[in-house]
Amino acid sequence: MYCDALVSGSTLLFSLSSKHTLLSLQRSTPNHYLGLSETRLFGSTRTTRAAINDGSVKPVSEMTLYELLGIPQTVTLPEIKQAYKELARKFHPDVSPPHLVEEYTQRFIEVQEAYETLSDPRRRAMYDRDMARGLRLAFSARKMCKYDEEIEDRSEWKSRWQNQLSELKRRSMYKDARKDLSWAAQVRRQRNESSVES
């Protein structure tokens, strides 16, 4: 059973990654790679059947991140977090009805990605700015990590962490290391604040 789900899951990767195929959801045609447009294959941007509850037929690929979370653009951070948790309770495969697990898992991943951008003040500010400039910021267009700078961020942390480690080993005094960290924390906070304002 699981295998079936996977096979059709990988079909999904292909047959659903374009707007063209949206209207004819054909999960059972594995060798039928239709009109794949600019959207990347395998992308975390496969389109599922629109917002499942709200009655709208707008496909996920055309929804903004706010629409994905079902919130207006003016919401505060706590409201974003709350909306995310509510949607997680609905779409997470641990709690979704067995026959909808596959579809809901997809939705969960999309909600998760929307949340990750909008819950980070700096990334949200960038996203909002682009939206204000009239760019059509649909979920699928978001794809390339303009708003995610995680990799950089982490490798930077990694080297800092390793420095700390050797520092600790050398002197076994952690006061300095802590000073380092709180400095980094300060910078991070400053960055966040300035991006909220902009």
Partner: peptide, 16 residues
């Protein structure tokens, strides 16, 4: 890395 540590699960990421 394609899926970074501390990525929420279930997850799906790709890279070209």
């Amino acid at each position: 890395p394609i899926i970074l540590r501390n990525t929420a699960m279930p997850a799906r990421r790709d890279m070209v």
